[in-house]
Design a protein around this nucleic acid. Structure first.
Lengths: 177, 177
DNA sequence: GTTCACATGTAACAGGTTACATGATTGG
DNA sequence: CCAATCATGTAACCTGTTACATGTGAAC
């Protein structure tokens, strides 16, 4: 799924600026299965406008650059839904540098492994909290499903790490006090 | 994590050809958190050889092109471990086109949604089976941890979908037979 | 006073994918 | 006989990231 499609998908639920799209993609309802940077969003919005899949409305402000509020057009909605229906997705991908590191736990400095485990757990717990919050404030069935999925997977990951981290940590020194 | 690092990481456990590296990355022990294509692996191996992080040994065969078996060097091991220790990873990423589709379940053809759910479940179940198999045949602690993590996450995802798929499926017609 | 949130955008660069080219052997 | 597996490699292309450029107002 490319950034243009993502933008259309976000605009599907309501108008937004490039800035807001970025926030939604990296911190909002879409963040646990999506990514995008300004450097790809702004050019994408330009192309979508050119192709009449979205329209822009400028709101000038004092000081800040004018807000450009994008709205999806009917054509945009059509193209978007068609593009989704074009293929059945199943090959979601995860890239985990964390798991990769775990493979070499015996040869990494013990501190490094402990720090990684810790960082990963923290990251997952923050994410989980965030997802739970969203889950409470969301009525939309599809979004609830996606968020719930994220919650389930996060919980599983946290539970697993907490139960099995000794596999990748050095044997604790005998307690001798 | 780039492809060069991945190659070093795979060669860490033993020598392999480019072809075998590709298989390990897409179907083997590394496949649930990693990706790489021939078009990136072969050039990476070339660069690694040039930089003396790996060595090659050619085994000519009749018919097929000569197998080029790569081995990691001491320098390669050093560089690899250092590169891991350079930073603490926590920001694993998932890209899920599947979840994205779910957000629009009400406006997609019902068949499409059902097919997506089905495909995703099938994909997850196959993956899970595969992970379980690997888990049985693997002694190495770090790998067991990574595989176990994958199993936990897969199980959670499958369980969630099976329990909540009605959220993204149209209300079933009243049974009337 | 400094950092954060708001707000847009570009250009150079990096990184990887897809498709192509080639070809024997094995299993169904 | 056809498909899959083994096996390497290149080149064109696509996509996206990073870093830069710019600037205000509010909060701490």
């Amino acid at each position: 799924m490319n950034v243009s499609t993502l933008c259309l998908g976000i605009l599907w639920f309501g108008e937004a600026t490039g800035y807001e799209i970025k926030k939604l993609a990296s911190e909002g309802r879409f963040s646990h299965f999506t990514e995008a940077s300004y450097g790809s969003i702004y050019p994408a919005l330009g192309r979508l406008t050119r192709d009449a899949l979205v329209t822009v409305r400028e709101e000038s402000q004092t000081g800040k650059p004018a807000r450009k509020v994008y709205s999806i057009t009917d054509k945009g909605r059509g193209v978007f839904i068609d593009s989704l229906q074009d293929r059945v997705p199943c090959d979601d991908t995860c890239k985990s540098e964390f798991l990769f590191h775990c493979l070499y736990s015996e040869v990494l400095k013990p501190d490094h492994m402990a720090a990684s485990l810790d960082a990963r757990l923290g990251f997952l717990k923050t994410g989980l909290e965030h997802l739970r919050e969203m889950h409470e404030n969301c009525e939309h069935a599809g979004s609830r499903f996606a968020i719930g999925y994220g919650i389930a997977v996060h919980e599983a990951a946290i539970g697993y790490i907490e139960k099995h981290s000794r596999l990748v940590l050095p044997a604790p020194a005998e307690a001798a006090e």
